[in-house]
Design a protein around this nucleic acid. Structure first.
Lengths: 332, 332
DNA sequence: TTGAAAGCGCTAACAG
DNA sequence: CTGTTAGCGCTTTCAA
């Protein structure tokens, strides 16, 4: 473990000079600079980020907290967050809270003890009351895609998907295809905004949304909910599920009932997980702007860290309709 | 930012005493200990992990390097690695190398500069030649699920799946069902061992593996490869794909050809990604022991870190056949 | 252009 | 039981 002191000794100068040379400052003569750089290379010098962090009060590390990376929604986001961080010379500590407030708080405390430069927190994985004090003491924080039934205080920087618009896009698509008998499978209350956007759009078209089934963002719950819907005498001509994962379950239920998609019934998802493009039929869905979300949130955090960002209004990114083959005009 | 010095001043003792009290050592009188703890709480004291790390040469952090977390194979593993780490009071720095050696090396350098206590490296995401010097200088390292066509030097601790066995299990299953005309879609050379195990088992049964299609672990490549196989006059009665993801593509190709699974053709995957259970029909597959892999590798790393583990032979974890509905006896 | 010195917050001998 | 002291490796004034 070579230190700048070792180099200084070897070259015959002081630590300060070595530090200056290594930092590329212009107050070192070209001759000594070369000798120092040379020597550093030979001795395999590697700056100590801990010591630097302690002295400069900056660690070039970010805390990234989420419910669980095993949820297929997050990996793509995590990848992008890490990419942006890396491009700015930061590294990322990944923390799964597993929706456990105690665990979340423990992680938070540790990150703060580590002097991470900022925190990116997704999906309501932490209590706001735990976050707020740290933010108020100057720790940069960005909240991303918070649970739809919670609204964090406006002081906290936020980046989110416009879930209400997502629901509206879904409804609009089905209406334009001519559907009038429409059902929804939704995870309430976590998907409250998607539902609200969907329902309101139907209302505007003079339709009442009556067929609502509760789901839990699992394939199985999508399957069970669809079963219920298909058993009704007034079977709907279209089903909107508030997540692609539930749509997969619904798809299986529909097939089992001997019905065909989209001929007998249209199916519309929301998320655009990788899989949806490869289902049979390929799933029409409302695509969430995952990459933009990750990038925007991370860049906002970095700007805060670098003091270039004082306040910011919550940022809302638009989803987009992605038409594939699981929706069509109703046949009856 | 309260420090132990602040507390010491407030209570009227020295840093040492505060440190001892906080560390729960028994060389502090109950009275002063209480006053110290009380005061620490009131002042919102939070230990500084950087300073501690610098002094003790230990950071309670782990570097976790992988090709990309967006590959659906990794999130479950990352979750488990992080869980184990967390249970031992470690946090995890996640680094995607994107199969870019330069990027991988940059990450590695930074992690080393950060004095991480150990490195868990998956899927050949780094050049062995970059890793080795650090390991030899005492940095704990564990390699996990290395690329099958590379064999890292035995000195490096390794945990891997027994991919040869995985291939053998696949072959055995199809043979037992009575298949004699068997094809494989494989990503060579990265899945070399899976293929070898498969081929050898067929050989032992007196069969020559002749139908081999190259795939690239994407749905599309599985689709294209299956198309080729189905167009042959000697169409096989069973197809083994060396990843579930390719099986999904094959499934679509088979459906398009108007054939039914498993009646006309059996399909066998390998991985057991979440999705496979929900396909139509549910995919029979060779399940990889992801959790065991993550847990074993992390625990091995932690034991190295704590100096409880000198050397270890490469550990090989067994996969298991998971019979669902995509395989059956050949009908002709 | 170079150096001396103090400090970041905590640990760890060792002495009293 | 408590205190003194000397680091850990680097940054950052301020002098020379």
């Amino acid at each position: 473990m070579t230190t700048i002191y070792d180099i200084a000794k070897a070259v015959g100068v002081t630590q300060t000079t070595v530090a200056n040379a290594l930092a590329g400052r212009h107050n070192v003569s070209e001759a000594t600079r070369q000798r120092i750089l040379q020597c550093a290379r030979e001795m395999g010098y590697r700056p100590n980020v801990l010591a630097r962090g302690l002295a400069r009060r900056k660690t070039f590390s970010l805390g990234f907290l989420l419910p669980t990376i095993a949820n297929p929604f997050y990996p793509e986001i995590a990848e992008e967050v890490e990419r942006v961080a890396q491009q700015h010379d930061y590294q990322m500590l990944l923390c799964n809270t597993h929706y456990d407030p105690a665990l979340g708080q423990q992680h938070l405390e540790r990150l703060v003890s580590r002097w991470v430069d900022g925190l990116l927190i997704m999906g309501s994985s932490l209590d706001i009351t735990c976050i707020l004090p740290h933010f108020q003491q100057g720790l940069p924080v960005v909240l991303c895609d918070w649970q739809e039934n919670e609204k964090p205080p406006a002081v906290l920087p936020q980046v989110s998907t416009d879930f209400r618009l997502a629901g509206a896009l879904a409804a609009r698509h089905l209406l334009e295809l001519g559907h009038r008998s429409i059902a929804v499978i939704v995870e309430e209350p976590r998907h409250a905004l998607r539902l609200a956007g969907f329902r309101d759009t139907l209302h505007e078209a003079g339709l009442l949304l009556e067929l609502i089934q509760q789901g839990y963002s699992t394939v199985e719950s999508g399957y069970a909910a669809a079963k219920e819907l298909l058993a009704r005498p007034d079977r709907p001509t279209a089903i909107f599920t508030t997540s692609d994962w539930m749509a997969l379950g619904a798809m299986n239920a529909i097939r089992e009932a001997g019905l065909s998609i989209p001929h007998d019934i249209s199916l519309l998802g929301l998320d655009n997980i990788q899989l949806s493009a490869h289902l049979h039929p390929p799933l029409t869905t409302i695509a969430l702007p995952k990459h933009a979300l990750a990038r925007t949130a991370t860049e906002l955090l970095l700007r805060q860290i670098e003091g270039k960002q004082e306040q910011s209004d919550p940022i809302l990114l638009p989803p987009a309709l992605l038409v594939r083959a699981s929706t069509a005009c109703p046949s009856r």
